[in-house]
Design a binder for these strands. Sequence first.
DNA 1: GCCAACGTTGGC
DNA 2: GCCAACGTTGGC
Length: 137
Amino acid sequence: MQYWLVKSEPEAFSWEDLEKSGKTAWDGVRNYQARNHLKNMQIGDFVLFYHSVSEKAVVGLAKVIGTAYQDPTTDDTRWVCVDIEPVQKFAKPISLEWIKNQPLLQNIPLIKQSRLSVMPLSKEEFEIIIKNQNISF
DNA sequence: GCCAACGTTGGC
DNA sequence: GCCAACGTTGGC
């Protein structure tokens, strides 16, 4: 079991869009580091969903329901996507500002490498972010 | 809206 | 193989 965080501009694809469609192919990734993380995802892994730019907050929890396969939005075989589905919306979004103030979250790529769109989190980092959300697994 | 950070491209 | 130019992301 691994833990991940993915970013999306809500104007492009939001948590609400994910809930509406029930599941989605996490495609369009064109960065090798992010691509490598996608390839490492396993079915059942949890994925935190972050709204970048206009909101800058983690807004929900999703999970992986399909492992990496050829990204259908390109013929270029370098790129893959995975399938995810929503688990639960956060009762209270976790802001970037809050994350920056947590001593134990100082090393996550969200802060250190702001342009990476798919990143791994440790179990501890994941649990700090989802605590107080009353999420039932 | 600006711009820093950073990844990619292409000329040499 | 280096690096300048360029495009994109995302915080501010």
